[in-house]
């Protein structure tokens, strides 16, 4: 199926605009829906977890979670893979510290890791789910601090 079929079939959220709006109006309305490239459209409300600066900056995230198996590597998408897998990286030799993660969230590399490796580790951390080691630490890092 091509894009036009999607549009004419009304499958898309705004697929009926063109039919409803007068000529020359729909594009503007669509453009308004899109907004500007720089305008953020996702606001995340963090759960109420540990909130003091001390607890936030002292926590750690093991990469990967030891429960997922010893000796595993992290691929570029943050997936836990077997050691030696292509496009995968050795895990850090120790758990990553909150302050290091905070800096990496702003684009810095982890100590001893290059850019690709650091992005892989961050991809893993972003995929953490409730119950996994380090989840609460990462969630805490994302909360606005006083």
């Amino acid at each position: 199926m091509n894009g036009m079929a999607d549009q004419q079939g009304g499958d898309g959220p705004h697929g009926h605009d063109a039919a409803d709006a007068p000529a020359g109006f729909a594009p503007t309305r669509r453009r308004l829906m899109l907004g500007a490239a720089a305008a953020s459209t996702v606001v995340t409300i963090r759960p109420a977890l540990a909130s003091t600066a001390g607890s936030v900056m002292n926590c750690q995230v093991p990469v990967p979670d030891p429960k997922l198996g010893a000796g595993k590597w992290i691929d570029g998408q943050g997936r836990v893979v077997d050691a030696g897998s292509p496009n995968a990286f050795r895990p850090p030799y120790r758990p990553l510290k909150a302050e290091e993660i905070r800096r990496a969230m702003q684009g810095a590399n982890f100590p001893g890791a290059d850019y690709e490796q650091s992005r892989a580790y961050m991809a893993y951390i972003r995929k953490l789910q409730n119950g996994m080691s380090g989840f609460t630490c990462y969630q805490s890092l994302q909360m606005p601090r006083p």
Partner: peptide, 30 residues
């Protein structure tokens, strides 16, 4: 919990049809 403003919900809805890059999503959104 996330608060989404357009076009973020529209993009997620467009991805219901399957994985797509930005160009394909643009097509799906008209």
């Amino acid at each position: 919990t996330h608060v989404l403003l357009p076009p973020a919900p529209n993009i997620l809805a467009a991805l219901d049809a399957g994985p797509a890059d930005a160009a394909r999503i643009a097509e799906r959104l008209g």
